[in-house]
Design a protein around this nucleic acid. Sequence first.
DNA 1: CGCGACGTTGATTTGCCTCAACGATTGTGG
DNA 2: CCACAATCGTTGAGGCAAATCAACGTCGCG
Lengths: 203, 203
Amino acid sequence: MSKENTIGKEAANDAIVAHIKEVINIEPAEQSYFLSLLKYKKVRRRQYILQADDVCRHETYIIKGCMRSYFIDENGIEHVIMFAIENCWIGDGLSFSNSTPSAVNIDALDACEIFQIDKPSLEALYEKVPAFERFFRIKFQTAFIAEQQRVICNFTKSAQDRYLTFLERFPGLEQRIPQHQIASFLGITPQFLSQVRTIALKK
Amino acid sequence: MSKENTIGKEAANDAIVAHIKEVINIEPAEQSYFLSLLKYKKVRRRQYILQADDVCRHETYIIKGCMRSYFIDENGIEHVIMFAIENCWIGDGLSFSNSTPSAVNIDALDACEIFQIDKPSLEALYEKVPAFERFFRIKFQTAFIAEQQRVICNFTKSAQDRYLTFLERFPGLEQRIPQHQIASFLGITPQFLSQVRTIALKK
DNA sequence: CGCGACGTTGATTTGCCTCAACGATTGTGG
DNA sequence: CCACAATCGTTGAGGCAAATCAACGTCGCG
């Protein structure tokens, strides 16, 4: 039993290995090599793991908790790009790939436990265990498709329908996240989401 | 000189090899193996290479010409998901991956020349030349990032700004494509795009 | 020629935003 | 422990960007 309400590194290892093995097969030796490249971290609520203008040095896997990436436009308005919960990856691909300053912030909405892998380690991993190229190829492919669906959904549906779609696709997430951030993710104002909810949830 | 105004298979081979070598290194043997998996095709204007409810069996690389993918919503309205021109890949990742019926159509806006690779061939390629996992990992990663930017752009900017962004990002494409399809891609009505243009281009 | 595809323009409507004010809750320092 | 600020959600009035509906001109093409 861990003293706090945390997963702990042992169980975290198991979780991420299971996550990998859903997609690719790896040998025990490759598995422990992979694990040796990860840094386990606890992150407090509201703590940043990436701030705009810094270079994104890690890809981050969430074992427990919830994070968001967002950016701030020229009018000072926050726009939530994505949420990430247990078993999701988050980062700024653009900044990570090119080692350029990031335009986005990533912070914790919950107390989180995460694994991080930095670029040299990931490159080494690709080199030594090419199956991980496949792993991330599939992850990015899926993410790309999902993002296309999001564009389509935004074009096709009203704010109310998008909210309902959000509830279906991320069940229970609306309990864990302030409402105005869901509004931001959906591309509407908090006021309008409030209005939408009173109508939508009446049914 | 080819008799028609086409690229021809020889030059097409060179083009796609150059495209691959921008991202990964491959041996001559791997290169000719790769080329042996591709089917070269000419496609007429308005010809489909994928229709909704069919399974997407190929990834398609465009050597010459312009294609679009789009879907038709419950009200019968077309929504352009993406355009693809020379040196772009197009397909329906979801249908291709899962061998499920596609929701989208892909057709030619121009007379096109294309290469296609089917799933068994691509799997074999991944197997024999793992560097292609890397190639497509990077392609999907880039595509994912671009799609995120698109979401953000749609949230942040007015229709006029989005049109100007479109002109910058796909220079000259507006000459090759009917205007109402650009409108669809931008998520606005053709009428409104017309209005936007008279204002925006006045400057 | 006549028809369909395409772009334009104008009148009206609507989905969502802006601005503003107000409770409820949480957190925090004195 | 209370006072006060900050955060969060709600509600309402008014405004604007873009949609809808409709009509019309222009091509290219069978």
